[in-house]
Amino acid sequence: MIEIKNINKSFGDRKVVNDVSFVFETGKTNIVIGESGSGKTTILKVMVGLHAPDSGVVEYDGRPFTQQSEKEKQEVRKEIGMLFQGGALFDSLTVEQNVAFPLDMFTNMSQEEKNERVNYCLAKVKLEGRNKLFPAELSGGMKKRAALARAIANNPKYLFCDEPNSGLDPKTSLVIDALIKEITQDLGMTTVVITHDMNSVMEIGQKILFIYKGNNWWTGTNKEILTTDNEEILDFVYASEFLKQLKPRK
């Protein structure tokens, strides 16, 4: 479980995150949604320690991450897997070397054990047989899947996904969503997905935090989001002209 308490973050005079609190539950895909620029990615970066919050606390199973020393934070980070928006695969390494990287760095596995683990992770994301390819030789969807394989290689307790479907076609997006949900349930992780893709929300959103102008505006599930009467949520969900016709009237 990850808990964020009263997180505030500003860049210069611009307040980006305003007093946001939320509990991300274990074994569930917790989704943070909101418009572009609403502060979603900043919240994620505060949670993983890439940004320091102005105030507030992030706790990983009771461990106060934001108040820990850099050395203690590194220990927590070893339990974190992250899928970046662009994949962030290491260009100079092949797919299998990318996936094996956290294993090389943090485990004393034999080469055979590492190969087994790499192949298991690649099979999990349906990338069998692509071991020797370099990131430049992969399509957008394959890069995301390879990055997901790397994120889960070291059996993380916490998985973060930043816009996992950005730049992907709807069909590939569904594949990525299904993988995230499956991996979360199979491995019992605490998964946090940052997105503005409503398909993802409806497919895998077991617990949802809606951020509006940096504030915790609404929380609920994917079933509740369609029936809420919160005006900002409805504007977000029914954004297109076509969907506006389906928007429930008060």
């Binding site: 890439l50 590194q74 070893k78 662009g86 962030a88 990287f101």
Partner: peptide, 18 residues
């Protein structure tokens, strides 16, 4: 620089690597 802007350095940091 390219590793920085393509978030590869962030990926290392999040793995717990200096």
């Amino acid at each position: 620089g390219t590793m920085r802007i393509s978030e590869q350095i962030d990926a290392l940091e999040i793995m717990g690597i200096n």
